[in-house]
Amino acid sequence: MKKISVIVPCFNEQESIKIYYDAMTKMKEEANKFELEYWFVDDGSSDKTFAILKDLQHEHSDEVHYISFSRNFGKESALYAGITEAKGDYVAVMDVDLQDPPEMMPEMFDILEEGEYDSVGSARMDRKGENPITSFFSNAFYGLINKISQTKIVPGARDYRLMTQQMVTAIRSMTEYNRFSKGIFSWVGFRTKYLPYKNRERVAGTTSWNFWKLFKYAITGIIDFTERPLAIATWLGSFFSLTSIITIIVVLIRKIINHMSSVDGWASMIIIILLIGGIQLLCIGILGEYIGKIFLEVKHRPIYIVKDKK
Rank of each mutant, 00 (worst) to 15 (best):
I303P: 04
F295M: 14
A267D: 06
P132I: 15
L287A: 07
G205H: 08
W212M: 13
P101E: 04
L296Y: 13
P196S: 10
E130Q: 13
K87Y: 11
W235Y: 13
P196V: 07
L112E: 11
Y38F: 15
W39G: 00
F239S: 11
G221D: 10
I246F: 03
V41Y: 02
S16C: 11
D118M: 04
G277V: 13
K152G: 01
T25K: 08
G74C: 05
I294P: 02
P106D: 03
G183D: 07
G189W: 14
D62G: 08
A86G: 10
T243C: 05
T220A: 11
Y197R: 06
A267M: 10
K198V: 10
N131C: 09
E201A: 14
I294L: 14
Y66H: 05
D308G: 02
E85P: 01
P196K: 09
K3W: 02
E114Y: 04
I7P: 14
V120S: 06
L56W: 01
M104G: 01
S244M: 12
F190G: 01
S135K: 09
R200T: 08
E176Q: 14
M94Y: 04
G88S: 09
G143H: 14
I294V: 15
V41C: 04
L56V: 00
T247G: 07
Y160S: 09
D42P: 08
I171E: 05
E107Q: 08
K48T: 08
K310P: 04
E76Y: 07
W209I: 08
A81V: 06
E113Y: 00
I284C: 07
R158G: 10
E59G: 03
L79Q: 02
A157D: 04
A86P: 12
L252P: 01
T220W: 13
